[in-house]
Design a protein around this nucleic acid. Sequence first.
RNA 1: GCGCGGUUAGCUCAGUGGUAGAGCGCCUGCUUCACACGCAGGAAGUCGCAGGUUCAAACCCUGCACCGCGCACCA
Length: 879
Amino acid sequence: MSEISKAYEPQAVEEKWYSRWLADGCFTPDPASAKPAYSIVIPPPNVTGMLTLGHVLNNTIQDVLARRARMLGHEVLWLPGTDHAGIATQTVVERKLRKEEHKTRRDLGREAFLERVWEWKEKHGGIIIQQLKKLGCTCDWSRERFTMDADYSREVQAVFVDLYKKGLIYRGKRMVNWCPVSLTALSDEEVIMKAQNGWLYHMRYELADRPGEFLEIATTRPETLMGDTAIAVHPADERYKHLVGSHVWRPFPRARIPIVGDEHIDPTFGTGVLKVTPAHDKADFEIGQRHHLEILDVLHPDGTMNELAGPEFAGMDRFAARKAAVEKLREMGLLVKEEPYQNNVGYSERADVPIEPRLSEQWFLKYPKVAESLEAVKSGAVAFRPERWAHVYDHWMQNIQDWCISRQLWWGHRIPVWYRKDNPDCVHVDTAPPADPENWTQEEDVLDTWFSSWLWPFATMDDATRGKFYPTTDLVTGPDIIFFWVARMIMAGYEFTGQKPFANVFFTGLIRDMSGRKMSKSLGNSPDPLDLIAKYGADGIRFGLLRIAPQGQDIRFDEKQIEEGRNFANKLWNAARFRQMHGPSAPEVQLEGLKLSSYSLDILAKLQELVVKLDAAYGEYRFNEAAQLMYDFFWSEYCDGYVEAAKSEIFSEDPAAKDSALAVMDFVLSHMLRLLQPFMPHLAAELWTTLGFTAPDHGCEHLMYVAWPQSATLLAGLERERLTTASQRVAAVYESVRLARNLRAEVRIPSNKKVRLFLKPQPEWAEEESATFARLVNAETVTLEANYEPARGEPRVLTPLGELYLPLEGLVDASAEQERIQKEIAKVEAELATVGKKLSNENFVQNAPAAVVAEHRKRETDWKEKLSQLQKMMHSLGG
RNA sequence: GCGCGGUUAGCUCAGUGGUAGAGCGCCUGCUUCACACGCAGGAAGUCGCAGGUUCAAACCCUGCACCGCGCACCA
């Protein structure tokens, strides 16, 4: 046992314990264990990533689940790792290359560039892993995985080949979402629709067969008109249907283009005439297919105009070209009007620029096991929490589209396809290159990062691990990646393992700033969790964040909340310190045979109730409730209530009473530390050791492996029949204390000043509690006197212990006291009226549950009793 | 357009049919022998609006308003 400092200083304690756990291999499970398995795979953060508050929330929840599972006797695997994050990582390294060497990746060439990326990854990647250790995460670091590990890559390629052979992967020239900055195709999920304030331009195209007559067309993208290869109207539109089959002049480059009739056109929008640019719009492309229109691509991949747009536009950026095209139309007298218009534009998720619909050769996947995956969530085989996310999943799965899986990047899993040099139509699709590689060229593209992440729950495990821990138990993630990751993992699980990948998915909320904005680097509104850890301790931030993280609801972050977590840690620290000051603790307390005070019985009953409620909260993944329950129990019930009351035993002359109270403190503290361990692991471990607690049969010296308290057997050996009466008595004393303190405050006696009180005792046991009562109200003496005669105007209050008097030797005049009691009477009368009204309602008395009615009747009796006593007190004051 | 959340004390949020809760902030008093990262007391809410169901509604139903999000979109 060592001396404990006055305030908890988390830094040294946290570092000490984390390294001790690591040294003792506490996080590494044994696949051969006979214990039931519990497993989680971490949502792999980007290898470029830095810890955000989102990660803190997410990983703390996982850690809480893992730690509690260990205490419940499970063999626990929490498997960590990082994601290669194709675009993000490649961008970081390219930027560095440009800045430091003024080179592009093409200057280096593919192989040399990839070497650089690996170098970067070894040197700077995975910082976030170190940061997770600071948080106290109990991941099995010996199993850390990376989505580009050799064996993981083999698995990705095998999956590609398998799906290709099943006919689910195909190559095709399709309209895809093209990012002009990253220069790659993207999946539909990587496109974010944003509302844009732009313009709707009305322009007119001259009819080729009727010079001088024009068709008016509305568009938001005049810069693509050079790629127009037709004009479309609705075939039934009375205004235009006679024109179908004739031609108009595209103004520049000047060309005759046909007018086609197509059902897709909405006659009510704009002028009811659409310019058709098959190369630059998905709907236009489809119209083009239907009418066999020419496809005229006027853009370079980087979003600048190409030669087909005409010499004056070639090389111009698409947005500059928009202005230029409008000007040119104006000069030609073809611009009718411009009106402000709001529409939605798709943005690239990573580069945050508008994407271009672009026709290109890409690889696509027809998703496997869609029906089975839909059913899994519907039936609850994979349980979503909160449940409402199941609808979002359902909707997406019902409308699922083929997935564009190829990316025009270098960093990633290269597609295992080779084309014969002398005949590109001859392909070799296999995890191994062809035997005569010199005659083949490998596909240049890599796979979408998510095409590797979707295998994460099983591709990260070796056979022995998979045998024990797959399918995993819980997945904890944000609802923002429900399509990117969760849905795809479920499908991959069924397709490649024949099983669901996890039993439960818990969706956390998003953390927002105080004005409700999403935390982001660019807004600079995201505090660095490491700063917060340094300031408040990992346990403080864990507890503070979880206490305010409701089920699946977004969270407004306020540093105050973390401060509360730190304060709670300090409270625990000092409560332990207080216990330690009164001698050594018993390593294992047995309640049996102890002579217990009412206060002890009461706090033990509340402890048991806490365990019951905590188990229920965990059962529903209500972590905020669990945190709040522990906070309230420990701070209010234990510290403010029990410890203060027990001081009269601890400081008493009776050694038996003192020992009994200390034993109860040990019992409560040791159980509290067990319950707290998942949330505040470092502090709990530290206090557990400092106080010298142990537990039987846990086979390990670490608190994290001590058994979770069992509510059913917690109070075994206790005089159960005394519990109820003890709790009632304690409640009466505490209520009396509150009223007495209130009285002191009302007559403005400073809280540190001792007073002499007189009590006309009510219950026959009042005397037994008078010493404790006196201590709690800071009274020098409490004199019990059935026939006490108060002075005129003496402050008094009616308590469950009896009428209480606070002599002030005439400092308060009778009228002031009368006024105070009159106010109390008014309050009681109001309460009585409320209850009376309810009880006089026959419908209530007949229909409400008997217990509710009885409760009301009792309330009425109590208030009546109180009223009559107050009136008597009023009378004795001469009122 | 369809769908999903939210709207409770000054602030951040709990509270799924039976007398409105917490923390912070605020006011008052306390360096009382664990803790000022603390102790004690207090003020403060027509539970978004309007209907309905019920003996009883913050809670269930209907409609509306506002805030946020997702999906799909008409150029």
